[in-house]
């Protein structure tokens, strides 16, 4: 006997967009990027992703238990932190340092503030900022992409003993006999030697760099999918990219031999990954529509300013952390006026 069809009149209840459903979808969107990272850098990238994710989950579990908040691992947000962190690290980054980064990121960036929803900054970037300051050499040691034999052997520095200096990769890289390898990412080449690699290579990801930041194209597709499903605010990445491109444009027009083109600025380094997956962090970004645009523009402008005039090669991380910190301020500035309420005056405050 067929089931009777139940028909009801409106209003219809829709399943609410729960936290863990959004987070799970972000993880799905990140998986293709992870797959490309593994395809490009091999076993080391896979181990890196597993290590940071594992360490992040363990840290979250420990702090949730210690503070009696119950199980917060199942909301998937910590998995995003772990994966994002791995994607921002150099593929040959020693695993023990990656674990330290994940621990610091989740503990200092999230747990101490009270867990998901209370963190001021993006936990993955807090972890990365810490290891950037603690291990400046290891985090700027790059290895070539598409090394032969990358699926059977790991980059030597990956398995460094805890608390020890990374095993040098110089000899290993030399043994690969890659002619064009200089040990620098496209960003560093542009900044210090004014050699601008082809924008097509940078766009598709045929370059060296952090594990998951190389292919702008793939990040764009995954990000657009999320935006299409309305699980991330498209205004943020668009504002970040606009801010970056518009800041870079006048300098490039002034002296194109010294300054990078806006295309290069958009697709190189971590700007795409940062714009689509980190700046758009729901907790750490402002809540108003105009605030979100202001926040995105700020990230784009600061990134380019750091890249062009700072001592560092890449500025996305600090730009996003800075904007995260300014987030609450931006939210309060851009608070919409309550309909009918009088314009606030200084005296009224």
């Amino acid at each position: 006997m067929p089931k009777p069809i139940e028909i009801r009149t409106s209003p219809h209840l829709k399943r609410a967009l729960s936290v863990d459903r959004i987070m799970r979808n972000v993880v799905f969107a990140l998986l293709p990027i992870c797959a490309f990272a593994v395809f490009q850098f091999g076993l080391s990238a896979l181990l890196l992703i597993l290590t940071t994710t594992g360490a992040a989950i363990a840290t979250e579990w420990f702090f949730a238990r210690a503070s009696g908040r119950g199980n917060t691992v199942s909301d998937w947000s910590v998995v995003i932190t772990g994966i994002l962190l791995a994607l921002t690290l150099p593929p040959g980054f020693p695993l023990w340092m990656a674990a330290v980064a994940a621990f610091v990121g989740v503990a200092l960036g999230k747990a101490l503030f009270g867990g998901l929803g209370y963190n001021v900054m993006n936990p993955a970037l807090v972890g990365r900022a810490f290891v950037q300051a603690a291990f400046p050499v290891a985090i700027t040691t790059w290895t070539p992409a598409f090394a032969p034999g990358r699926f059977t052997e790991v980059i030597p520095s990956t398995f460094t003993l805890p608390f020890m200096q990374p095993i040098p990769v110089k000899d290993w890289v030399a043994a690969l006999q890659l002619d064009a390898w200089t040990g620098a990412t496209p960003l560093a080449l542009q900044k210090f030697q004014q050699i601008e690699p082809s924008v097509t290579d940078v766009f598709t990801g045929m370059i060296a760099g952090s594990a998951g930041e190389t292919s702008a194209l793939l990040i764009l597709i995954c990000g657009l999918w999320l935006a299409f499903k309305r699980m991330l605010d498209w205004r943020i990445p668009v504002a970040v990219m606009a801010g970056a491109a518009l800041t870079a444009l006048p300098f490039w027009l002034m002296d194109s031999s010294l300054y990078p083109s806006p295309w290069f600025v958009l697709f190189s380094g971590g700007l795409m990954l940062g714009a689509w997956f980190m700046a758009s962090d729901m907790v750490a970004s402002p809540v108003t529509t105009s605030g979100v645009i202001l926040y995105g523009l700020f990230i784009g402008i600061v990134t380019v300013v750091i890249r062009l005039f700072g001592g560092l090669v890449e500025g996305v991380m600090y730009a996003i952390l800075l904007a995260n910190a300014a987030g609450p301020l931006i939210s309060s500035w851009t608070q919409p006026r309550v309909y009918g309420a009088l314009k606030k005056t200084r005296e009224a405050e």
């Binding site: 340092m97 810490f130 300051a133 603690a134 291990f135 400046p136 608390f163 990374p166």
Partner: peptide, 16 residues
């Protein structure tokens, strides 16, 4: 304390 290969945590001797 740890011999040759120790990796110093640079951030610790900096102000942060």
């Amino acid at each position: 304390l740890f011999g040759e290969g120790f990796q110093p945590w640079v951030v610790m001797i900096l102000p942060p």
